[in-house]
Each structure stands twice: as structure tokens, then as C-alpha cells.
């Protein structure tokens, strides 16, 4: 790898959890700070970079690869807010083909095209469908691609479950040179139990929570305009939340190999939280806690 390749960061999270919104806002902040940024959407839905591009169409890497034998960077990229170079890996229609292999093929093509050597980014952000259902979705965290991964999760159990699966994948690849975990980004923080639940999960796994993104109408509103919060409402509190996240990713180099919970451990942990939330809602007070 050349010196100019920049920091490669993979951001994982369960589908629909807000990782594309989070990633795009982080990209926007980094671009706003003067960095050269590439954001690569690694999800067959190919909507990772939509809010960086004002909702305009962008042919995906794989669609282009299917149509033409020789692919150029201009064919598969668009410059979005703040100069962020936006790329969507794309994939097959649902239920057909192999999306995992698609991600593999798309990342290989970007390397073949020497995108990173030529564009000389300071940051490359991979926004990856986080269920890590097969080897293909783990490509960005394998040796030689991203050096750090972050996971976006809400306090919903399925999101935590997906995050735990990512921890398992990191456990597998990190010892042979794959990415390590930078931390957890807690998203859609709304209910009173959200923050302590994610904190507790992170503590169990031995990983830091690098920021808490509250559920906010600002985000929904900006997305309706086809923009990031940074572009649409740069003075908002929510924009500052993303700025802090980006600052952490920029300045901190800490990373860990997480301790993934096994099936029974995760179930036991979830059940304990189920009890706590139920008790909170029915007014049970334990150990003199006031919730």
C-alpha cells in the first residue's frame, strides 16, 4: 500500500439502523474540515451516498461492470457535498445472485482502477450492510482494506445482535491483519434505557462507545431535502453531534479486538435487560435506584 492511501474506515450496522446517514454526515464533516474523502457504499440497496449527492442518480460499480468491459472512475463516481467522492458498489436484485461476491468484485475493481492512489484521499469510508451474513460482507475488514471498523447500533436487540456478529467477524480477521474495532456509535437514542443498554453491551464486549446520536427531527428533515445535516442545518445541535464523532475518528487511533458474546451469553444479557426495562416501566425500584 502506498503512503498516500489515507485512513480506511469501515462503518457497519444493521440495515435501517442509520449507518448511511451517520456515515454520510461524518464524510460531510471531514470534507468540511478540508479533508479529501471517498465514501463507498457497500450495500446492494446502493443508497449510501444519496444525501451527499442531493439524491441524484449514480450508476453502481457492479451495474457498470455488467454493462461495459472497461470501467473508468468517472463512470462509477460522483462528487458530492464538500467534494466527497461518492461510489456505490451496488449488487444484484434481491433474491438473485450473490451480493457478497458483488462487494468483493467491486472492492477489487476500485483497487484495480487505483482509485486510492490517484485520488489520494485522506479518508475512505466504507458503509457496509452490517449483518455480515457471509464472507463477502467481511471484505472491507479483511487484511489490507480498512484498518478500523465502527459499528452503528440502536438499543434494539436485533441491531445489537448484528453488532455482536460484526465483533465475531473482527475477532476472526483481526489477528491476521484485518481491521480492529474503533468503537460503537450509539444511534437513535430516545428511550431512557437506550444509552445504558448500549453502554452495558459495549462494556461486556470491551469496546468504547464513541458517541451518542439522539433521535432527531433534524435528520429526518435534512434527508427529505436530500442533504446531510451538515449541509442542510449546519448550525444545529445534531450537526455538532456528528462533528464530535468525526473529530474522534480523525484524532483517535485507538482500536480493540472486541469480545463477542456467544449465543447463550447474548440471550442471557438481553433477558436481563428485558427485565430491567419491564421493572422500570412498572415502577419497581431496586438497590435504591431512582430511574
Amino acid at each position: 500500500m502506498s503512503e498516500k492511501k489515507g485512513k480506511h474506515i469501515a462503518i457497519y450496522g444493521k440495515g435501517g439502523i442509520g449507518k448511511s446517514t451517520t456515515t454520510s454526515n461524518i464524510s460531510a464533516v471531514l470534507a468540511e474540515s478540508g479533508y479529501r474523502v471517498i465514501q463507498v457504499g457497500c450495500d446492494p440497496k446502493s443508497d449510501s451516498t444519496t444525501i451527499l449527492r442531493g439524491g441524484n442518480d449514480l450508476p453502481t460499480v457492479l451495474d457498470t461492470l455488467r454493462e461495459q468491459s472497461k470501467v473508468k472512475l468517472e463512470d462509477i463516481s460522483a462528487v458530492g457535498f464538500g467534494g466527497v467522492l461518492c461510489i456505490e458498489a451496488g449488487g444484484p436484485v434481491p433474491g438473485v445472485g450473490c451480493a457478497g461476491r458483488g462487494i468483493n468484485a467491486a472492492v477489487e475493481l476500485l483497487q484495480d482502477l487505483k482509485v486510492f492512489e490517484e485520488y489520494k484521499p485522506d479518508f475512505v469510508l466504507y458503509d457496509v450492510l452490517g449483518d455480515v451474513v457471509c464472507g463477502g460482507f467481511a471484505v472491507p475488514i479483511r487484511d489490507g482494506i480498512a484498518e478500523r471498523a465502527f459499528v452503528v447500533t440502536s438499543s434494539d436487540f436485533m441491531a445489537v445482535f448484528a453488532a455482536n456478529n460484526l465483533f465475531k467477524a473482527i475477532n476472526k480477521y483481526a489477528p491476521s491483519g484485518g481491521a480492529r474495532l474503533g468503537g460503537v456509535i450509539a444511534n437513535s437514542i430516545q428511550a431512557p434505557h437506550s444509552r445504558p443498554l448500549i453502554d452495558d453491551f459495549a462494556r461486556q464486549a470491551g469496546v468504547p462507545v464513541i458517541g451518542y446520536v439522539p433521535r432527531s427531527m433534524t435528520v429526518a428533515q435534512s434527508e427529505l431535502y436530500g442533504k446531510t445535516v451538515i449541509e442542510a442545518l449546519p448550525g444545529s445541535e445534531q450537526a455538532d453531534v456528528y462533528r464530535n464523532l468525526a473529530k474522534y475518528i480523525d484524532e483517535s487511533h485507538d482500536s480493540v479486538i472486541p469480545k463477542a458474546l456467544n449465543g447463550p451469553e447474548l440471550k442471557k444479557w438481553a433477558r436481563s435487560w428485558g427485565d430491567r426495562i419491564f421493572e422500570a416501566e412498572t415502577g419497581v425500584v431496586q438497590n435504591m435506584e431512582s430511574i
Binding site: L65, R66, G91, V93, V96, G97, C98, A99, R101, G102
Partner: peptide, 10 residues
């Protein structure tokens, strides 16, 4: 080929 693997070969 890889194209058929990614997008389905039916």
C-alpha cells in the same frame, strides 16, 4: 463468469 455469480446466472 463473475458477472453471473454476482447478478445470478439463471
Amino acid at each position: 463468469t463473475e458477472k453471473h455469480v454476482v447478478f445470478g446466472g439463471s
